[in-house]
Each structure stands twice: as structure tokens, then as C-alpha cells.
Amino acid sequence: METDPLQTRKHFILGFGALLLSGLALSSTLFAKLVSYLSGDRMSQIDRTLFLKTKLSRMDQTASERKLELERKSSEYIFIAKMSDLLATKGKYFIDYEMRPALAFQSSEDGLPILISAKCTHLGCTVGADLDENSRILCPCHVSYFDIKSGMPHAGSPAKAPLPHIGWVIMDKQSKIVASKHPKREVEIVEKLDMDSLDHYSIYIAKKFASKATGEA
């Protein structure tokens, strides 16, 4: 191949020079970015206050979860809701003894509570709280509808196993147990409930009904 030393040198100088220039530009750009990144945040006083508030509320959330956990380790009964606060169409979320989400409904038939696990039996998503017209709740992750009375998923749903029911006790204002339900058995009524003054009654979950105690998975 014919080589012209002058041409060759020109290519070298141009190439090397251009790369040097772009390398310099790149490294100084990156260096500037790096310095600004490492010198920390640039927050106004208002931003800092708001941000600290956010952080604090997240810590509160974690703290409340820890409290829930402690309560479940130490108490025999845990308050879920007042009877009068339960709805037939929208569930109230609570956390069961295994720290799993669960839902509390009022039965549209007898007015007694229905407590059902909200941890989908398919892949563990939290099931939604709203009841559809067929009294089913929906797991949004893979569209499984669960009937809250039986716990069963609809035919052909990704979830195969039913959502387990959770046992409950109802206490009156004097903390006297007036009714209870073991997850697998019928309701035991100790004293007839006055359905007109439901705010006198509170619903609790009981350690003796927790799935570990009753030997369920």
C-alpha cells in the first residue's frame, strides 16, 4: 500500500487531538456531575421540612407495624372493629395473628361478622376490600374472585384454594364474651345480641383461634 507519511501523520494528529478533546470534555462533564452529586442535597428550608415530615410519617408507619406485631405476640384478644362499623359491601382491613392482611365484613344475612384472610391463596397479593354484586372480593393481581361466605375462588380462577376464614369473638361493653366463632365450627352464642345497638359490641380476634393454634397452614 502506498503511504504518504504526511497524510499518515495528519490522520494521527487529527484523530488523537479529537479524541483528546472529547475525552477532556467528557471527563470534565462527568467530574462536574460527580462533584455536584457528592456535595449532597440542595434543599430549601420548606423542602427540607416537608421531606422530614414524609420521613417521619414513614417511620411512624413502620413503628405502627412493629406495634401491631408486638400486640399479636402478647395479647390474647385483638380489637378489630365495633360491630356498628362493619359494612356489608366494603370490608375493613385488619392484620391477623400471623401479620397477614385480612378483611372484616358484616354478613348481609344474619348481621354477624365475617372475617376472612385477604392474602390471596394464589401468589399472596392483598385482596381488594370491595364486594361485587355476587358478594365476591377481587384479587387484582391475577383476577381471582373469592366468595366471602365460602372463601372459594370462582371457577377457572388462578387461585385454587379458598381464602381461610378467621375466628372471632364479640364482647360487650363489660368485656364479656357474648358470641364467638371458631374458624371451622358454627357460631356459639352465649347471650343474644341486641341488633339495634350494635355499637355496644366489639369484635376481636383471638389467639386461641389463630391458625397456629388451630393447626392450619
Binding site: F12, G15, F16, A18, S22
Partner: peptide, 23 residues
């Protein structure tokens, strides 16, 4: 700046490749 870096480096590589093929 980034586009400038890209273009100068393309230019540089072009000439260095020519240089290397000549030597």
C-alpha cells in the same frame, strides 16, 4: 455537550482508524 463529545470522538476514531490502516 454530550452530542459534541459523541461527534468529536467519532471524528477522532475515524482518523485514528485511517492512521492505523496506513501504518
Amino acid at each position: 455537550i454530550i452530542l459534541f463529545i459523541a461527534i468529536t470522538s467519532l471524528f477522532g476514531f475515524k482518523h485514528l482508524l485511517r492512521y492505523s490502516s496506513k501504518v
